[in-house]
């Protein structure tokens, strides 16, 4: 086999392998869109479920997911970014930081149901928040922390070292250097991590199962100590727990959830490309 033939063969094989990875994802999306699109309407998004959830819309679940995503953001980001700054800029290489890093790596690999059970034990029962938006947000927030910390730390470390040296040499303190020369340039990467983390939080079922999600509540939550419906759990309920559920509503809810999660990824990508384009170095 000549070198050119070998090259062609390699390209061919790699293309096929790549396609095998992409095709199932596309099929899932196409199928859910095809099945769910007829159900989508303004009423579907803005009405509560009726008649044992067999009619009506998904508004309480949609709102619940939005609230939980916000709550996750509020819990996760200050902590994650502070941790990333500490690890990247302040912490040396010692036993403590090695333990912290190991904890983060391991946290990223923990199954989400374990986070759910932890949330139940720690926030719902021990701290007495009950099954509530607060408990759910804390659980989801902790779950998203590893990925946000890792991406933020990477983004911070990617800022050229010379910028720090120059800034310090001009009389900036360490924090001023981080504030003015590191964080602004690390922001695209940090934001990407945040949005990807939120996308995951919006789509997870297991962590909210015991900590916040309600099977069915007719009225909307009035405080962070209330339960709420949430889209992933609602989807689980109407797919498995309600006999005679119209397929269209199930796929409609699935489509909305899919769109939310995909839009997070899309926004993350857009933010990153936009800010990379503006980057000067």
């Amino acid at each position: 086999m000549s070198r050119q033939q070998a090259n062609k063969l390699a390209v061919g094989v790699l293309t096929v392998v790549a396609a095998i990875v992409v095709i199932p994802i596309l099929l899932v999306i196409v199928y859910v869109v095809w099945q769910g699109l007829p159900a989508l309407s303004w009423a579907f998004l803005t009405e509560a479920p009726r008649n044992g959830m067999k009619e009506g819309g998904i508004m309480p679940a949609l709102l619940g997911t939005i609230l939980l995503t916000l709550g996750t953001a509020i819990v996760s980001f200050p902590l994650s970014i502070a941790t990333a700054i500490y690890l990247a800029e302040y912490a040396g290489d010692n036993r403590l930081t090695r333990w912290i890093r190991m904890a983060i790596v391991n946290l990223a690999g923990i199954p989400s149901i374990v986070y759910g059970l932890f949330g139940l034990g720690a926030f719902v029962l021990f701290m007495g928040f009950g099954t509530s938006i607060l408990a759910g947000s804390l659980t989801l927030g902790i779950m998203t922390m590893p990925v946000v910390i890792s991406t933020a730390e990477e983004a911070i470390l990617a800022v050229p070292q010379q910028f720090r040296t120059v800034s310090l040499s001009l009389g900036a303190s360490r924090w001023q250097t981080i504030r003015y020369q590191v964080l602004p340039h690390a922001l695209p990467g940090i934001i990407t991590g945040i949005i990807l983390g939120l996308g995951r939080a919006a789509g997870e079922t297991a962590p909210i199962l015991f900590t916040v999600a309600a099977f069915y509540v007719p009225e909307l939550p009035r405080s962070i100590f209330d339960q709420t419906m949430a889209l992933p759990y609602h989807l689980y309920v109407i797919s498995t727990q309600v006999p005679g559920m119209p397929l269209q509503i199930q796929y409609g809810a699935a489509l909305v959830l899919l769109l939310i999660v995909l839009s997070f990824t899309l926004v993350a990508t857009l933010v990153r490309t936009q800010m990379r384009r503006r980057r000067e170095w």
């Binding site: 910028f163 120059v166 040499s169 009389g171 900036a172 303190s173 000067e280 170095w281």
Partner: peptide
């Protein structure tokens, strides 16, 4: 910080900040 303002360094590789 004050010391580095009094004794100021210009580096071999000129690095303007973005």
């Amino acid at each position: 910080s004050a010391l580095r303002r009094r004794v100021s360094m210009v580096f071999a590789i000129p690095t303007p900040l973005p």
